[in-house]
Write a protein that binds this DNA or RNA. Structure first.
Lengths: 158, 158
DNA sequence: GCTGAAATAATAAGCCG
DNA sequence: CGGCTTATTATTTCAGC
């Protein structure tokens, strides 16, 4: 396997392959990973331990389909707080359990947030919590041309 | 444990607890999950099997920190294709490995996409692929007031 | 990083309410 | 049908090299 260590943030080709396989199925056994990269199982386990230690692997998690839970309506909210209310709005967003993720961004919109709800009425309830302190723009998700996929794609081969 | 089955999409309180624990750490052993919900390990395994079967659990995956890979720049792109080019733009987005997710949405922006890149130059390269066929608006992520969290939050207690 | 042994965990079979 | 216990198989972890 080609030597690439100390490029791509200190990860070699085996590390990248392990990451890609774990992204596809986090329950892949170390034995199977070992076979895929041509190392022994304990070596793979040690590499995974280090990937966690240096923060590359943040967590092992399950992807849950909101629609299967009855949350059939998802929406992106762009949120522009009125002057002086940014921290208040951030607090409100954090306290809304329907918000599954929220980033602070540059540009005229300060926040972009994802909400999963069961109905338009619930979406209205979410927006009404925010709207006293911010201008909002809501875009309902119709489909997902790119389902959440690996950030590894951003790595340029060097 | 209170009986809630056939509410919340057929999930009872034990199922929800299992899901919440797996979201926090997908490697939690069935024995530990069993202890948490007051069932035996095989019963928990059977519930998990059914949660996968009916699509609630879509996948087991690892969360990877793009910054730890050297992808220190992330941005939300709002993309409005010029008339007639929507399918072309969707194809281009799918083929850009730097795009980690993309939703089609209602409103004047047709797509909202997340990019992870190593530099402003790489971001420019991504935008330049799209811009012949669409108007774009780029918002750099500064921080994340709400790190990706459970869609279970959207469930109303009934 | 490897091998081989010990400890853990997942899975399967058979049984009960 | 959903759950429990026991037995078997697979996987992870730990020593020593």
């Amino acid at each position: 396997m080609k030597r690439l260590r100390n490029e791509n943030a200190g990860l070699d080709a085996a590390d990248l392959k392990i990451l890609r396989l774990l992204e596809k199925d986090a329950r892949t056994s170390t034995a199977e990973l070992a076979r895929a990269v041509g190392l022994s199982a304990p070596s793979v386990a040690e590499r995974i331990r280090k990937l966690q230690e240096n923060g590359v692997i943040e967590a092992y998690t399950v992807r849950i389909d909101p629609a299967a839970l009855g949350l059939k309506l998802s929406a992106w909210l762009r949120i522009r707080p009125v002057p002086g209310q940014l921290a208040v709005v951030a607090g409100i967003i954090r306290d809304l359990p329907e918000i599954a993720q929220c980033d602070r961004v540059t540009g005229e919109d300060c926040f972009i947030a994802l909400a999963h709800v069961g109905s338009v009425a619930e979406l209205e309830r979410v927006i009404d919590k925010i709207i006293p302190y911010a201008m909002t723009n809501t875009a309902i998700i119709q489909s997902s041309p790119v389902e959440p996929r690996s950030p590894l794609g951003g790595l340029r081969e060097r």
